[in-house]
């Protein structure tokens, strides 16, 4: 029963992945004054690609054929350890965030191999950029998870998140809510008080910033990578898949959408721990989860609309900035604690 519930939440996340991809495009279109494709267009695209045949370059080997499947499998299994909408993950065990990071690294490894297998210098270029930026991002995730693990004293993402949620004491808030005596301002004030008592507000805020940067870098969004670019020389992710078509391309698209959803779920889980009182549970939690995920998607779309692509030599600074934020937060916490 627990597993079935966890699985259904997991499928909700997959559904959200498509929805988020659609919302991002919609927000961008809206900002540009266009109507934009339907929100479910990513799903239609995948369906269309799945029914098509494929063209494979004579240069490639079996690695090229297997790479998209392995990449998608890695993203899907990374999702299994994420707690969704306040509930426990499908799989949770001590140190599962290490599994999360490593299995995603495996997916990236095969994405790079697939690109290199075509013998195309442009794809090699994209692969080299992608794997460099991701390698620089790797410590940030571990430092965030290390911080949260230290603050909660627990070692699996599910436990860390539920503990973080219960550390924010909303009992004061609950009493206000039940008496219904005061306005919105007191409500917010009390919430802020609850956050600061828990000592989680700053780390969660910084973690979310770093995770948002991770989304942007890892999934190739502006200002790091332009999904709408037409020039292969400036692309990162787009150029890695120049030779993929048919079901392979469909899987690559799903994997990309899923990656946004994975990182979005991490952001949403932390945010929900702060803003959603513990007495809220069940379906309402899932609705809030879906809502925050859509806000995250809209935020990504908005950032994409208002920023311009950075020079490629600037990207590493941006990425290392993310890691530095994580490290600074952590050292601040350590000084505060010890």
């Amino acid at each position: 029963m627990v597993l079935a519930l966890a699985l259904s939440r997991y499928f909700l996340m997959i559904a959200m992945a498509f929805l988020m991809a659609g919302v991002i495009v919609k927000v961008k279109s809206f900002w540009a004054g266009r109507y934009g494709p339907p929100v479910l267009q990513p799903l239609y695209d995948v369906w269309k690609l799945l029914r098509k045949g494929h063209v494979v370059s004579g240069t490639t080997s079996a690695v090229f054929g297997a790479a998209p499947s392995i990449t998608l499998a890695s993203v899907l299994s990374a999702g299994l350890v994420l707690p969704i909408g306040g509930g426990p993950a499908v799989l949770h065990f001590s140190g599962d965030f290490v599994f999360f990071a490593y299995v995603l690294a495996l997916g990236r490894f095969f994405a790079v191999l697939g690109a290199m297998d075509t013998g195309n210098s442009l794809e090699g270029m994209g692969a080299s950029r992608d794997v460099t930026f991701s390698a620089l991002l790797e410590p940030a995730f571990f430092v965030i998870m290390g911080t949260l693990s230290m603050l909660t004293g627990l070692t699996s993402i599910t436990e860390i998140y539920s503990m973080a949620a219960s550390m924010v004491d909303f009992t004061i808030l609950a009493s206000i809510h039940s008496t219904g005596s005061s306005g919105a301002m007191t409500y917010i004030a009390e919430a802020v008080k609850a956050w600061s008592y828990s000592g989680l507000f700053v780390p969660v805020l910084c973690s979310n910033i770093v995770l948002m940067i991770s989304i942007i870098v890892d999934t190739g969004r502006m200002p790091v990578d332009d999904t709408a670019a037409h020039d292969e020389l400036t692309m990162i992710h787009g150029v890695m898949v120049l030779d993929n078509s048919g079901p392979d391309m469909a899987m690559i698209n799903v994997a990309r959408a899923m990656k946004i959803a994975l990182m979005g779920t991490l952001v949403t889980g932390l945010t929900m721990g702060l803003v959603v009182p513990t007495w809220v549970s069940g379906a309402l939690c899932l609705v809030i989860y879906a809502f925050i995920m859509l806000i995250v998607a809209a935020a990504i779309g908005l950032i994409e609309s208002v920023t311009v692509r950075m020079r490629l030599s600037r990207v590493p600074q941006f990425v290392l900035g993310a890691s530095s934020i994580a490290l600074i937060v952590l050292s601040a916490l350590m000084i505060g604690r010890s």
Binding site: A101, Y102, A105, R108, F109, V112, V131, T132, S134, A135, L136, L137, E138, P139, F141, F142, V143, G146, S323, L327
Partner: peptide
Amino acid sequence: GVAALALIEGLSVL
């Protein structure tokens, strides 16, 4: 140390 190990892992993949 954890950050360095993570970076080592990322760079090995590279």
